[in-house]
Design a protein around this nucleic acid. Sequence first.
DNA 1: GCTGGCACTCGTATGCGCCGAGTGCCAGGA
DNA 2: TCCTGGCACTCGGCGCATACGAGTGCCAGC
Lengths: 338, 338
Amino acid sequence: MLSERRLQVLRAIVQDYVGTEEPVGSKALTERHNLGVSPATVRNDMAALEEEGYIAQPHTSAGRIPTDKGYRLFVDKLAGVKPMSAPERRAIQNFLDGAVDLDDVVARTVRLLAQLTRQVAVVQYPSLTRSTVRHVELLSLAPARVMLVLITDTGRVEQRVIDCPAPFGETSLADLRARLNSRVAGRRFRDVPQLVEDLPDSFDVEDRGTVSAVLSTLLETLVEENEERLMIGGTVNLTRFAHDFPLTIRPVLEALEEQVVLLKLLGETQDPGMTVRIGHENAHEGLNSTSIVSVGYGSGGEAVAKLGVVGPTRMDYPGTMGAVRAVARYVGQILAES
Amino acid sequence: MLSERRLQVLRAIVQDYVGTEEPVGSKALTERHNLGVSPATVRNDMAALEEEGYIAQPHTSAGRIPTDKGYRLFVDKLAGVKPMSAPERRAIQNFLDGAVDLDDVVARTVRLLAQLTRQVAVVQYPSLTRSTVRHVELLSLAPARVMLVLITDTGRVEQRVIDCPAPFGETSLADLRARLNSRVAGRRFRDVPQLVEDLPDSFDVEDRGTVSAVLSTLLETLVEENEERLMIGGTVNLTRFAHDFPLTIRPVLEALEEQVVLLKLLGETQDPGMTVRIGHENAHEGLNSTSIVSVGYGSGGEAVAKLGVVGPTRMDYPGTMGAVRAVARYVGQILAES
DNA sequence: GCTGGCACTCGTATGCGCCGAGTGCCAGGA
DNA sequence: TCCTGGCACTCGGCGCATACGAGTGCCAGC
C-alpha cells in the first residue's frame, strides 16, 4: 500500500498538473507544497508511484503526469466534491428560474453547466418511460389521420401523426381520448403498455383498427432507445486545449455528434448518484483522453435523466463535480415546480 | 471591365484553390486548365485581377488566393448551382422520409446537410408566426394552473404553464378551449393577436383575469425574437481545416453557440431564395473567414424558416448551393405531408 | 498583345548546437 | 531504514544558418 506521503505527492501532482497543464517535476512540487521533504525524496516517491502506474513521464527527463489510474485514485480517495459558494448557487437558481418551458430549461442548463465548468455540457431530456403521464391528446387532422400528443409531468411533449386504416369520427376520437386519459393520466409511462392492452376490445369493430394503430404508435414512442434525447453545448471549451489538442479535439467532436454513443455512456450505470468515468474507462475510443462527470436528476426522489460534462482527463474534478451536482439539484427543483 | 479570359482565370483560380487549399500559381493554372495562353500571360492577368482586388497573395512569391470580392464575383457570375444527382436526391428523400416528428425532421436534416456538404449545418425550426394554427390545447394542472399547448401545421409544438389569478373550472376551461380554437384554428399565427383581442369580454367577470393571462402568455409565445429556435450539427467538419484553423475554429464555434447571432444572420434577408454571404459580408466578426449559404424552406409556397451551412470562404460553392437547395426542397415536401 | 527568359523574393524545410529542466543513482548521515 | 545533497546523464525545445524551390515581375522580341 502507498504511504500517506506518497498519496500526498500524488495529490500534489494532480493538482499542479491540472493547474499548469505541464508535467510537474520534483523540485517544483516541494516548492509549491509543504511536503516537508527534499526533492530527492519526492523523486523516490515518484519512482514508486510510477512503478505502481499512477503517474508517467511523457518522455525521459520530463516531469510526471497522472495516468488514468492516478486520477481514479485521486477522485476516489484524495479529493472531495467542492461545494458551490452561496453566490454561485444563487446565480444558478436565478438563471434557471427564467425558463419558460422544458426546452428552455434544458437549453439553459446546458449553457449554465458549460459556463460553470468551462467544459462541454451534456443534458439528457427527462426520460419518457421514467416520467408520469400528464395528458394524452388526440387531434383529428383529416378523416383518417390523427395526431397523438403526449405530455409528461416534466413538461416534455411528444407528438406523432398516425394514418388510420379507416375514417375515425370526432365522437369516436373524443371517446378514445377520454378513455385513454382516464386509464393513463397520472400513471407512469412505463406502466402504460399494460394499462391500455385491452382497450381496443371495448370499441366497435370498425374503430378497432384505428385504436390499435394509435396505441401501437403510443407504445413505439415509449421504446427506450428512441425516446431519449439530449442537448449539448459549450463545445467552444474544447478549443481551450488547442495547443496540444488539434488532433484530439476531432474524435471528441465526432463522439459528441454521435448522440447514441453519449446516451449509451450516460446510461451505462443505473446509479443516479455521481459517476466519474476517466479516460480509458470510457468505452468509446474517441473519448479516451476525456473524462465524463455525470449525475442523475429528477423532480422527486427518482432520477428521470442524467446530465454532466465532458472534459479532458486533466480537469478540476472537485470543482466540476460540485458544479454538476449543484446544477442537477436545481434542475430537479425547477422540474418539480412546473 | 474584365476581359472574358481574365474571368476564366479567376474561375480557374477559385476552382483550384477550393480543390487544393493551396495558393495557386500561374504555371499550375496553365497546366490544369486549357486557357490556351502561356504562364506569362496568365501572370499579367493575375496582376490585373489583383489590382482590382479579386485575388491576393498571402506573401510575396506565393501563388494567389481569391479574396472575398473574388468569391463574390465567382458566385454571382462565374458559377451556377450544381444540381444533385438522381441517386443523391433519392438518398435525401429516403433519409428524411423516416422522420417521426418535427424534431426528428430537423435533426435528420441537420445530419444530412452536414454529411452532404461536409460542413456545419444550421436548420431553423419553422417559425411560429409564419405558420398556421392547427390546434390550441388547454389542460388543467391544478385549480389555478393551466397548461397551454400550441400545435402548428408544420408539427411544431410549444407549451407553457400559466398561473391563474383565480381558480378556473373545467367547464370554463373547455369553453375557452372551444372558443379559442374556433377563432384561431386554421388561421396564421401572425393574425392570432387580432383574432383573440376581444375574447375576454365574452367571459364572466371572475374568469376574465385567467382568460387574459392565458391570452397574454399565448401572445408572448409568438414574439418574434423568442420563438425562433435552431439546431446545429456537423461541427466536426470544422476540424478539417485544423492545419491553418486552430485559431480560426474558436471564434466560429463561439458564434455558433450564440444562437442569437446566427438567427440574426439568417433573418437578415427576407428573400426566401438562396443567399450566399461571403467572409466579411457577415456582420459577425468571428465569421469573417466563413461563408454562409442559406435558403428558405416551407411546406407550401411560403418559406417558414431557413436552413443552410456555414463553412470556410474557401468552399465548393456550386456543390454546396446545390445540396442546400435540394435539401430545402425535400424538407418542404416532408412538412407538407405531415 | 502574347511569349520565353531571367533575376529576385521569400517562406519552408533541414540540420546543428546549446540550454536547461528533470531524472536516476549513490554515498553519507540521522 | 529512511532521508538528503551531489552529480552525471538524457532529451525535448529553441534559435540560427543554410539550401531549396515555387512563384513573381519585368523586359525584349515576335
